[in-house]
Design a protein around this nucleic acid. Structure first.
Lengths: 220, 220
DNA sequence: CTCCCTCCGACTGTCGACAGACTACCTGCC
DNA sequence: GGCAGGTAGTCTGTCGACAGTCGGAGGGAG
């Protein structure tokens, strides 16, 4: 008797799938910042009950992708200039911790290799805007993962939704300037040298530049 | 016609009130880490429907107060030793950013005064364990607030639930050693001097000591 | 023409019920 | 005595419906 095929059964709950669908719809730009997300419409469109959509929306609200407006109505979030500046300062602190812990680890060279693979993906994204975004964020989350500190990853992910709406609030035409291998290589090099102050300075500057980028010429 | 009294109407939703009640029940120790939180039991005890309790529980799950166990059943969270160490390293990074921004602000002396008031509350808590916990966490969240970076506060609060279950997982008898005015004063003094490297070192050491404290003699 | 009142539509808040899944126990057979 | 199979109980997952509230359109009075 054969035992191979039997495709993996999807054991995820409906709520999880709806959550992923909505998150994807927002981060892909199908819903723009400010758009109203009505429970009834979404439930009808997804073919599930309101309660299920509701739970997914509440989850996205805590992720910062969605925010409550008048009368509890939810809409796609968009950050103010001050929030964006603060966001990138927090990211600088978190990713500064990440490089600190990576440099302190014995398997630093393995981390460097993994990071190089991440920038290669960024280089391979070409002109595909969505792929560039994924590769860029993928590099930074990988940075956190390689620190070996799950709580750091958790904290970083808590900011991810806010970053994604910020990215989506801009014109895709002018964003690629930020997401190039050249901007990320210095971080890896400093880690490889074991140059902690240098790595911290590079991360700091990387985030400051990103903050400037996303706070100028806002809203498309 | 008189216009004064008319007590403020509570416009909070039932879900918000249930959320606060459950959060309070956990952080006060009524439910211990590992305890199972059944939707039916809670709904019956609170006199609300399961759906409402469910939403509150999901919120607490994202806060890290509650975690999913077998078959989606939720129980009060408890952190491993590694998670606790990582948690306090992230806190060190965040609160390090806080002191950095406070020192850079022009109204630094006002922040110092506010922080002194916070440690006074800690001193006035006496032997009341719950009051000491509130005053201690109050000091640190105040530190973040005074940075003027709302995103920093948001990130810190995201860790608050995990800290609270960690605190609650220990014997109240031996915790007070951590939460004394003497342990917090050096932070304020370094800020007052404008001594950034000194302040960072103090915060770092404060968090390392706290991590050691909460990873030794675990579980009561 | 303007202002106010009323009615209508839409949306979220909350609830109770049904269904599916897993656990633990209990019984009968080997 | 031990193990397989069945069975009851309990928990979460999901759904549809009712109710309350807010905003706006529309009509009538001044």
């Amino acid at each position: 008797m054969s035992v191979e095929p039997l495709p993996n059964i999807d054991r995820s709950t409906l709520r999880e799938r709806v959550l992923r669908a909505l998150r994807s719809a927002i981060t892909s730009g199908a819903y723009r910042p400010g758009d109203h997300l009505g429970e009834v419409e979404l439930a009808g469109r997804l073919g599930v009950s309101r309660g299920t959509v509701r739970e997914a929306l509440r989850h996205l609200q805590q992720e910062g992708l969605v925010t409550a407006g008048n009368r509890g109505m939810l809409r796609v979030n968009s950050l103010s200039v001050e929030e964006i500046r603060g966001l990138f300062r927090v990211r600088a602190a978190l990713e500064g911790l990440a490089v600190t812990e990576i440099i302190a680890r014995p398997d630093r060279s393995a981390a460097v290799a993994a990071l190089r693979a991440a920038v290669d993906e960024l280089a391979g994204a070409g002109d595909d805007f969505a792929a560039k975004v994924e590769a860029d964020l993928g590099f930074h989350v990988r940075l956190c993962e390689l620190s070996g500190n799950p709580m750091l990853v958790e904290s970083w992910r808590h900011l991810e939704g806010r970053m994604r709406v910020t990215i989506m609030n801009r014109d895709p035409e002018e964003a690629p300037a930020m997401m190039t291998p050249g901007r990320h290589a210095p971080i890896i090099e400093a880690i490889e040298r074991g140059d902690l102050p240098g790595a911290l300075a590079v991360v700091e500057e990387h985030m400051a530049a990103a903050a400037d980028h996303f706070t100028s010429t806002r809203a498309r």
